[in-house]
Design a protein around this nucleic acid. Structure first.
Length: 470
RNA sequence: GCCCGGGUGACAGAGCGGCUAAUGUGACCGCCUGCAGAGCGGUUUCUUGGGGGUUCGACUCCCUCCCCGGGCACCA
């Protein structure tokens, strides 16, 4: 079955066909490290992590590029507020972002490209736009894109220039010829970090780094560009205008993907609303795996409401799935050759695989994919009660592994650590079993209590004792 | 005002032209159990925002109204 992706450019789900054979180039707008990353960032990057993983599982050679806006207005504001060097600000929040990404298992990006490492490419692109007449130099040495010269302006967002309300949220820059124009290069103001350019000292505008970086690495046309919906206009509109004017190749990007917003208690998350959730604070309330599950428990284009109740529900559902997987793995180790639950379990594996693939092929519907996993967990639990054989359990465990290759929710963090832990626990479980046989419940309960304190839960079943992380 | 999304059981959230409308959470009952936990079985609740239309048939397509979220020129 072909993979279909909702393309913001055409407002339809389209069959995904890469430009160059099985190679896929994808670019996702990265962060500006000027403050703590928040749960909204997490939602977007978890979504695209899964996109990259699924494409790779389908056999595509994916190059996933993400930029880092390490010089921008908000960083300058931060300099003014804190008096710190911009490099320190960037380094601090970048480290924090990476820690967050690690906790969320987002590790599929091939290259994080920093804007300030691409000043020559940015300048070259601005020069090209000036030569082709799509840009002009203002009196202060800033360079602006002339949106009146670009006839496709608005094709991504469906906006018409004349219907927009200039200054609805931001005061128009007086240097611009038209309010729609946007800065390609910003002239230095006293004390600001700056780089040399043909127009004097200054720094890149917000939109130009993305096209300079992505065209440099991915070429004048590529497969996927992702970000959150809030960026459709003006940011992505500006990118299209820059790239297509500069290279003459249309469309700049074949498929534009946009994630839905994260809301807090039904409202947009904003510092000013006092409902801001930094990723690092959220990770104090839930584990990275639980948060990842929570975020994937909705299709990526849907908005998600970040609430305590929602998190608790996701944690409960997450544990059910994880424990089901852990129990199937444990049972496989000790399973007999065959069992009465085998036929049903094998059928359930086939159904779950088909369901998972169909869901993911339909615009990365992780919610439905998770439903398929739930079904297999139920079937596996049932089979465990009825008695399941090694082969059927192996297939089940293998299916879970395949699903986890994409969703990355419950694979153990380290195979080696897991092996040692398994050995130690097997030993303790044996000691406890001996005590129970002697009816020495004081000893057996002490072992269980102490392990529980350490976050390991022991469960007695008719097939023996199972353990799992709390 | 204009441009996008969306409104489905107690809650979260799929399905988007045709079988009793997934799945999970919650609640309740039962089974299992030294105790506990998890699991299993069962029950609980939706005719799909309102109205109109197309069709043999619509949650699913079209029109209209209401409501919610996002964007409207430097937010992932």
């Amino acid at each position: 079955m072909p993979l279909r992706i909702y393309n913001t450019l055409t407002r339809r789900k389209e069959e995904f066909v890469p430009l160059h054979g099985n190679r896929v180039s994808m670019f996702v707008c990265g962060i500006t490290p000027q403050d703590s990353a928040h749960v909204g960032h997490a939602k977007t990057y978890v979504a695209f992590d899964v996109v990259a993983r699924y494409l790779r599982q389908k056999g595509y050679a994916v190059f996933y590029l993400q930029n880092v806006t390490d010089m921008e207005d908000r960083i300058i504001e931060k300099i003014e507020k804190t008096g710190k060097d911009w490099r320190d600000i960037v380094a601090t929040y970048w480290r924090e972002f990476q820690e967050g990404m690690r906790a969320l298992r987002c590790d599929s990006v091939n290259l994080y490209a920093r804007a300030t490492d691409y000043i020559p490419e940015i300048i070259a692109q601005i020069q090209g736009l000036l030569q082709k007449g799509f840009a002009y130099v203002a009196r202060d040495g800033s360079v602006y894109y002339d949106t009146t010269k670009y006839t496709d302006w608005g094709k991504l967002s469906g906006q018409k220039v004349e219907e927009l309300r200039p200054g609805a949220r931001v005061t128009p820059d007086p240097n611009k010829r038209n309010p729609a124009d946007f800065a390609l290069w910003k002239a230095q103001k006293p004390g600001e970090p700056a780089w040399d350019s043909p127009w004097g000292k200054g720094r890149p505008g917000w939109h130009i780094e993305d096209t300079a970086i992505s065209i440099h690495h991915l070429g004048p046309q590529y497969d996927l560009h992702g970000s959150a919906v809030e960026h459709v206009f003006p940011h992505h509109e500006a990118e299209i205008a820059q790239a297509e004017a500069f290279t003459g190749v249309k469309p700049f990007v074949r498929t534009w993907m946009h994630t839905g917003m994260l809301m807090v208690a039904g409202e947009e998350m904003h510092k000013s609303l006092g409902n801001f959730w930094a990723l690092k604070d959220a990770l104090k309330v839930v584990s990275g795996d639980e948060l990842r599950f929570f975020l994937l428990n909705a299709q990526y284009r849907s908005p998600i409401n970040f609430t305590q109740a929602g998190l608790e529900e996701a944690s409960a559902a997450y544990r059910r799935v994880r424990d089901g997987v852990v129990n199937a793995r444990a049972a496989e180790r000790v399973a007999p050759a065959s069992g009465s639950g085998d036929a049903g379990l094998k059928a359930a594996v086939a159904t779950a695989r088909a369901g998972f693939t169909a869901a993911m092929d339909d615009d990365f519907n992780t919610r439905e994919a998770i439903a398929a996993i739930h079904d297999l967990v139920s079937a596996s639990n049932r089979a465990l009660e009825a008695g399941a054989g090694r082969a059927a359990l192996h297939e089940t465990v293998e299916a879970f592994r395949e699903f986890d290759e994409v969703l990355s929710l419950f694979s153990p963090p380290s195979a080696d650590a897991d092996r040692i832990l398994t050995g130690v626990l097997d030993f303790l479980v044996q000691l406890r079993e001996d005590a129970r046989k002697r009816k020495d419940f004081a000893t057996s309960d002490t072992i269980r209590t102490r392990l529980a304190d350490l976050g390991i839960v022991l469960e007695d079943t008719k097939d023996g004792v199972r353990w799992r992380r709390k």
